[in-house]
Design a protein around this nucleic acid. Sequence first.
DNA 1: CGCGATGGTAAGTGCTGTTAACATTCAGCT
DNA 2: AGCTGAATGTTAACAGCACTTACCATCGCG
Lengths: 191, 191
Amino acid sequence: MSRRTGYHHGDLRNALETAALELVAERGAHGFTMAEASRRANVSVAAPFKHFANRDALLAALALRGYQEQARRFADAVGSADDPVEQLAEFAVAYVQFAIDERALFEITFSAGLDKTAYPELEEAGSAVLAVLLPPAKRVRQKRALELVHAIGAVAHGCAAFFNEGVFGADQARTTARTSARAIAAYRSTR
Amino acid sequence: MSRRTGYHHGDLRNALETAALELVAERGAHGFTMAEASRRANVSVAAPFKHFANRDALLAALALRGYQEQARRFADAVGSADDPVEQLAEFAVAYVQFAIDERALFEITFSAGLDKTAYPELEEAGSAVLAVLLPPAKRVRQKRALELVHAIGAVAHGCAAFFNEGVFGADQARTTARTSARAIAAYRSTR
DNA sequence: CGCGATGGTAAGTGCTGTTAACATTCAGCT
DNA sequence: AGCTGAATGTTAACAGCACTTACCATCGCG
């Protein structure tokens, strides 16, 4: 991070990401604009394009942050239990908690209309998240472990989305995620 | 529906809704614009505002269609089984099938950044959808039936979202929804 | 026929993303 | 120290967007 000279900002790339995150937090995924982010960074509207190819590229950079934070949290969650069913349940709760704590990041990754297939680094980060869940899933159900991961991911995502839409409060979102994840994992382990 | 005179379109409101739906189907929820819809209806860009207060109002009209179609499908699904657990499972499958068959409507209702609280008719339609599920949920678990409905709704939504994102194929989305819904309903009915 | 309601048009405002041409500063080399 | 090229800013422009205003055409009705 270089110092600002009055002409050069010094850390514009970072400042833009921060401003964008604030904007999404304030106005929702749709409410972020390059122009407003530029204003908040005290920079002309054209400046951001020296750091990001386009609007989507800025969102993609934030989405990457989001996936990395997720991976960290999910690894912790899986590490916080020994029983594999509980590990999966803890993951589901952590997924919801991420949506609660980092609402802006969550919205960017899932409601900003970003085409993830256009950013290979995002697909890669998504796979990394998945990899954390495969070991416990295999202990629950050696075959079809991937299906189990997907099923648990789907509930967790549904609960997080419902929280985001205001259908669930934070408590209900966490509880529903935990209970449903347990139900799915237990059901599959016994048939 | 009146006839078109060359000056008056005759059925512009409907034509705009249809064009908007096509646009969303072609380009995603984000890719719809009033201007493009106007062009497809062979009408000036200002004309739509005689029929819709703003862009969101057009989306809201389509979202309403979506909820009504959902209510129809869910009622059918619940009617297609006798066992209440299977009724809930059929609902979950129907939810996913709606996302598959009516991708554009699904995206409008859940990925278009539409503020549903601003349109009371949407909240109302959402409640109507919920009402279909309460009777079977009560048969599974008299107390906390609403929680059960929410949990099943969350899985179904998660599966549909994963399908929409390309994580799931159609078959996998349906199967995961059915199996997970069964697991949740069965788990809750036995404890 | 006349007349108001309805539903179109053209033109304009202010915002957006994005680009192009130009200016300033930084960092490394001689 | 001074030169030079790469980074990183600026200003000015363009086209597309949502939306408003003022106006015009048509329909249905007394």
